[in-house]
Design a protein around this nucleic acid. Structure first.
Lengths: 222, 222
DNA sequence: ATCGTTTTGTGAACCATTTCACATTTCTCA
DNA sequence: TGAGAAATGTGAAATGGTTCACAAAACGAT
């Protein structure tokens, strides 16, 4: 077990902290482009609308990366965070469902930039099977499990209609996939050792709606 | 001020509670289709991987909608939640940026279902301007503010590249828009009275990556 | 070398959210 | 009509997350 693993297990890093690491990574990428050598928790916080204490506390869960009086070395910290997040490597990703959302995601460059390489596409529509998207030929969903295994897929993105999503998930779980990003608006059942995250785009619109109707004044804006 | 507003102000409803309301709404829609008359907090919780106490506490912030011994009336509760979330009406939405993501969102039926009607499309690309997407003609981003005002837009979805997102936001804020859903991966500056939510699709993949690399065992899975 | 300034790293204090636990209500069935 | 079962609503307790505040460290200027 690596040091990072150890720490993450012991201290039970919160979901919020992990999400903020993503924000720090993003800010650091920009700072790097702007030729910053170092950055203070204050500046980092300002750029992502957080507090300096929050930044320092988050980072402190994983080690002490800064220099008192100076701040954090931009390049170094960026590397550290990418290692913590596990995006210092490439992940083999399959995308299932080449509809509206699916097609958009194939071309979504942010995924590739963070090391998520979409290498397989699946659909059940005969008109789509065999077609080419960004150099990848769409496979038939029929022998999904087998192809997923053969292609050594580590992460699956679900972009199929809600009605069939559970079947698809059962298949890919059987194929040994341990990480799923789900765009279908329903709660999917997976075994305990499978990580699943839901991307529910209506939810944020609903939050906006709630805020407007109720004049909501949240303590914090994510 | 309505009762709901009053409650939301006083008790400072948390973001998590609001997000869970979205989940309850979704579950209730399904239950309604399945012809359930009533539902218990237990069943509702099970369907969204929450706890019964959580469900009851969330709902209790807004009133007491259930009957002891029986549960909650499905239709009635669904209506109540949709009123609380403000999705018992239609919102006029403009979508800016008709690229990968943008085009996908125009056809994304979930938005329409929840009352978010995309009625205006904008882009700065001459090849796209004038083209028709789902019956809506793409307008030039040039006189954005004016057109937004004229069309009485209440919500704007930003699907432009990060490099231009801030300019677009400044324009729509000037046009009086108070709610923004941002897909560009950066932190946008808006005045305090403007609600903005970020949809960062890489973030969830990064969470999955973190979880795999660190054998993360979160207390709760969202 | 020393002083003042800056800024980290981190326990402790604080605040927010979740869970517990139970009184209360309603329903059902005999 | 009454007893048992089911399930809500809600204070209180427990847990978890954020902010505070300050000692310690490093730097820069003199």
């Amino acid at each position: 077990m690596t040091l990072t693993e150890e720490v993450a297990r012991k201290k039970r890093i919160s979901e919020s902290t992990i999400h903020r690491l993503s924000l720090y990574f993003r800010a650091l990428s920009l700072l790097e482009k702007e030729d910053y050598e170092t950055v203070s928790s204050k500046e980092l916080a300002k750029r992502e609308k957080l507090t300096p204490a929050q930044v320092r506390k988050d980072l402190s869960f994983f080690g002490s990366f800064g220099t008192r009086g100076l701040g954090y070395p931009v390049q170094e910290l960026k590397k550290r965070i990418s290692a913590i997040l596990g995006i210092d490597r490439t992940w083999r990703v399959a995308l299932i469902g080449i509809g509206n959302i699916g097609s958009a995601l194939v071309s979504y460059k942010e995924f590739m930039k963070q090391g998520f390489n979409i290498v397989k596409l699946f659909d059940n529509d005969q008109r789509k099977i065999g077609s080419n998207h960004k150099g990848i030929v769409v496979s038939d969903i029929n022998n999904l499990a087998e192809e997923i295994r053969e292609a050594n897929i580590q992460v699956v993105i679900i972009a199929v209609p809600a009605t069939v999503a559970q079947y698809v998930v059962d298949d890919i779980v059987a194929a040994g996939v341990k990480a799923i990003l789900n765009f279908a608006p329903l709660n999917l059942r997976v075994p305990d050792d499978v990580y699943i995250r839901n991307e529910n785009m209506s939810m944020e619109l609903e939050y906006l709606s709630f805020a407007m109707v109720n004049n909501h004044t949240p303590k914090k804006v994510r």
